[in-house]
Amino acid sequence: MIYFITLLCGLLFGFGLALSEMTNPAVVIGFLDIFGNWNPSLIIVMAAAVAVSMIGYLISKKQIKPLLTDLWSLPTAKIIDSKLILGSALFGIGWGLSGYCPGPGLTTLTNNPAEGLYFVIALIAGSALYQFQPTK
């Protein structure tokens, strides 16, 4: 059942991205171009996503355990360190240069396969590089 719910959530997420045109890098780059032809639609999409996430989080706080598994899997880190700042900066730079973040970027494999292949290869390479980070 958990796999079906996970698939359903992924499909709903993808549908929302497609419906809001967040799979179109021109829309994302238009949002980031505040001194040019600015497109503020991403603010509405982000606000809706944050609102839905907050509601889900508040509901989860009132439950003793999740519905489909035994334990909660929630982040516990509360510190802002150099890894977080560097990772966030790299994500933002990549997003700003390409107009893709990981979710919408995967849709390029069907929308624009030549460009999508480059994005997915870079996504996998970046994820693999995480394994080689220095440890303390």
Rank of each mutant, 00 (worst) to 15 (best):
M1T: 10
M1V: 10
I2K: 12
F4A: 15
F4S: 13
I5Q: 10
I5F: 14
T6W: 09
L7A: 13
G10R: 03
G10Q: 04
G10A: 11
F13P: 03
F13R: 02
G16V: 02
L17Q: 07
L19N: 10
S20E: 07
E21W: 00
T23S: 09
P25Y: 00
V27Y: 04
I29A: 05
G30R: 01
F31G: 01
F31T: 01
I34C: 06
I34H: 07
I34S: 08
G36R: 10
N37M: 06
N37G: 08
W38T: 03
W38G: 01
P40V: 01
S41E: 07
S41N: 07
L42T: 09
I43Q: 02
I43F: 07
I44M: 03
M46T: 06
A47S: 13
V50K: 04
A51F: 12
V52R: 02
S53G: 11
S53F: 12
S53M: 10
M54T: 11
I55W: 14
S60V: 04
Q63N: 13
I64E: 02
P66G: 06
P66S: 07
P66M: 07
L68C: 09
L68W: 13
D70P: 04
W72D: 06
S73Y: 12
T76A: 09
T76G: 09
A77H: 14
K78G: 11
I79N: 08
I80V: 14
D81E: 12
G87P: 07
S88F: 14
A89L: 15
F91H: 03
G92E: 00
G92K: 00
G92V: 01
G94Y: 02
W95M: 00
G99R: 01
C101M: 06
G103F: 01
G103L: 06
P104E: 07
G105A: 09
L106Y: 03
T107W: 06
T108I: 02
T108K: 08
L109M: 12
L109K: 05
T110V: 15
T110S: 12
T110P: 02
A114P: 06
A114K: 13
A114H: 12
A114T: 15
A114I: 15
A114S: 14
E115G: 07
G116N: 05
L117C: 09
F119R: 05
I121L: 15
I124G: 06
A125K: 05
G126K: 08
S127D: 04
A128F: 13
Q131P: 03
Q131V: 11
F132N: 09
F132K: 13
F132M: 10
Q133D: 07
T135N: 11
K136W: 12
